[in-house]
Design a protein around this nucleic acid. Structure first.
Lengths: 178, 178
DNA sequence: GCTATTGCTTGACAAAATCAACTATCTTGT
DNA sequence: ACAAGATAGTTGATTTTGTCAAGCAATAGC
């Protein structure tokens, strides 16, 4: 429980990240039969599940480049999948909405994605399925809450020869002398 | 616990996938400062942690296109990061190995990646960290074991009007009549 | 009102990934 | 032993994906 375990925890998380990176890659292959790219699918999903999002909202939440997203949305609009309505409140932004055509197009993708996950789950007993979902919920709950933006965190125990602590805050890494 | 819950489980897994897709994306941003792409980094990692892998082995395990990987490896070889040794056993394949230079190049990446995860963990209490790691281990254990390649799995409970079961096996989706 | 900021778009470009064709080697069946 | 087929890897052509900076219109802050 001491600092000695920090390395082990980090390794465990990294192993999981490698594992799940691959898993997600495999799962996404299934949607490859659709005419949409992964990014397009993610955007479609958000469009289908939000009230009247703006482009900026989607870009922020999906972590997409604004320009990139703009093109994706332009493509959707051209294909008649979405409608852009000028915002009354702020003339710079448009409120986005799936058209009926958009919903019809999206529906089979949704089925495909569901069935794929269903197949994955189906390979396991109900008990295992429950444990899996519980573990996922736990991770989401733990990592989903925004971490405190306050103190820097000790990453490695001090060792002779170290110049100080090595700390990382918000992705940036610093060395700090004693 | 009945089939009624299937949909709920599927939704939970999908939500987690969306969540973790984003998480991984954010975590990879940190390595953006390095001169290597995500794919290159993954390959480097495997090279550093395997005995004498072949290109095919890496391509399979990382899910990379053979041609794409070939170019990545050619780049590494050109930069003096790896060495290809003709396999005695099979003249078609080469055994790959990081050079000392390769190890030196890889080391700071490893530190960066570790510190990034460390920062993530550091935002949580030790107890939370333990629960996080336990949940990740659970998922890996459950999904890591190769599922039985036998029976098709029931995805949705029967409803009036259904033509039959909708089943999915290994990513392919079939309809089956009663 | 003037300036800075914000939301979005566009053009130019670079990086990442896919596909098919091809060579060299190995395996299988007869 | 040898032809036919499979496999490991490379290469060229191409597409897809993503990034960056410039620019425009609308808004917000002095």
């Amino acid at each position: 429980m001491a600092a000695r375990d920090v390395e082990a925890r980090i390794e465990a998380v990294r192993r999981f990240n490698r594992f799940y990176t691959r898993k997600i890659g495999v799962l996404h292959e299934g949607l490859l039969q659709s005419p949409f790219s992964l990014a397009q699918t993610r955007v479609l999903y958000e469009l289908a599940h939000r009230e009247r999002p703006t482009a900026g909202e989607l870009a922020r939440d999906l972590g997409l480049d604004a320009g990139y997203l703009s093109r994706i949305l332009a493509g959707f609009a051209k294909a008649g999948l979405i409608e852009k309505v000028h915002s009354e409140a702020d003339g710079r932004q448009s409120l986005l909405r799936l058209t009926d055509e958009g919903r019809r197009t999206f529906a089979p993708l949704e089925v495909l994605a569901r069935d794929e996950i269903g197949a994955m789950l189906g390979a396991h007993s109900l008990d295992e399925q429950d444990r899996l979902v519980a573990a996922m919920d736990a991770i989401e709950r733990l990592l989903g809450a925004k971490p405190e933006a306050t103190a820097p965190y000790l990453l490695r125990p001090h060792q002779t020869g170290d110049i100080g602590w090595v700390v990382a805050v918000h992705g940036a890494v610093y060395a700090r002398e004693y």
